[in-house]
């Protein structure tokens, strides 16, 4: 029972990270209808920036907002400088550009901070609560991801900019006709996705350790979450992310054949199964539309 509770909590905690990555992926997917394969690398780079600031002695409470701001600006810049000039080039050209971006960011991080594995301190300190049932870092992860997700929900649901972003993603032509600057909404989406990724990276780094390749498998779990929830539904993506976290941990613990080494293939299995049997995801609704 205790083991189950512990695994559930671990699942929810890492699930929150996957949820953030899934949400970042879905936000960009909705805006430009392409999957950002470099999303993980962007998050990794943000995490290194945070690490660097910590190494310089900047206090943690300042590092997180600063990293988020820098990442936001970076996301906007990437959209403006790299993605926008592509216009409506074919899907595969986009994929190649994302691959190029992946290579650039990965190589740059390795060049600046080298490829050795670095410990990353938790902002919530060591130690645990409830007799070791849940570590402080896990509590922090759950609290922060929940806060971020709720704030995003409120932003999209109740602010005008949030509404404008939703309108721009759904129907760019109509959005222009009501005076929404669609290009900037897309850039904003990129900035926000980068910022969310930065939070995810900082929260997962104390667990997986910091190195340039740390986000590849996390991104895959994020994709699995996005697919599970439906690429067209941000809320679904968030649920999907949590579910992937829980499934991953429970399966790894209770199905001996799976153990540690099959955890990653689970993501593949989930992605393919969900796509095959329910291409719109569990939460993605096909919008009822009259023509």
């Amino acid at each position: 029972m205790e083991l189950l509770a512990q695994q559930l909590i671990t699942g929810i905690a890492t699930g929150g990270i996957y949820a953030c990555m899934a949400l970042a992926v879905v936000m960009i997917y909705q805006a430009i209808h392409h999957l950002n394969f470099a999303q993980g690398e962007m998050a990794m780079f943000s995490t290194f920036i945070a690490w660097q600031m910590l190494a310089w002695g900047v206090p943690y409470w300042l590092v997180i907002p600063l990293t988020v701001v820098v990442s936001f600006a970076g996301g906007v810049a990437i959209e403006r400088l790299v993605i926008r000039p592509l216009g409506d080039a074919p899907v595969l050209s986009h994929i190649v550009v994302f691959i190029g971006l992946f290579a650039i960011i990965n190589s740059l991080a390795g060049f600046i901070w080298d490829f050795t594995i670095k410990p990353f301190p938790s902002p919530f300190g060591e130690g645990s609560q409830f007799g070791g049932l849940i570590s402080n870092h896990q509590i922090g992860m759950i609290a922060v991801t929940m806060t971020v997700l709720v704030m995003l929900f409120l932003f999209f649901q109740y602010t005008r900019v949030g509404l404008a972003m939703r309108a721009a993603a759904e129907n760019p032509a109509s959005a222009r006709l009501v005076g929404i600057r669609v290009g900037w909404m897309i850039a904003l989406g990129w900035g926000m996705a980068a910022a969310i990724g930065a939070v995810a990276g900082i929260l997962i780094a104390p667990i997986v350790f910091l190195e340039p390749n740390m986000m590849l498998s996390i991104l895959l779990y994020g994709f699995a979450g996005a697919v599970l929830g439906g690429l067209t539904s941000p809320t679904g993506a968030v649920f999907g992310g949590f579910m992937v976290g829980i499934i991953e941990n429970l399966a790894g613990t209770y199905i001996p054949e799976i153990g540690g080494e099959l955890k990653l293939p689970i993501a593949l299995f989930l992605i393919v199964t969900v796509l095959v049997f329910k291409p719109t995801g569990l939460f993605g609704r096909t919008v009822v539309q009259r023509v």
Partner: peptide, 18 residues
């Protein structure tokens, strides 16, 4: 050019976006 995924009222709010 309806925003099909938004509510009626949100569509109207979009009209006043500027």
């Amino acid at each position: 050019g309806t925003f099909t995924g938004l509510t009626t009222e949100e569509n109207l709010e979009c009209g006043a976006m500027t």
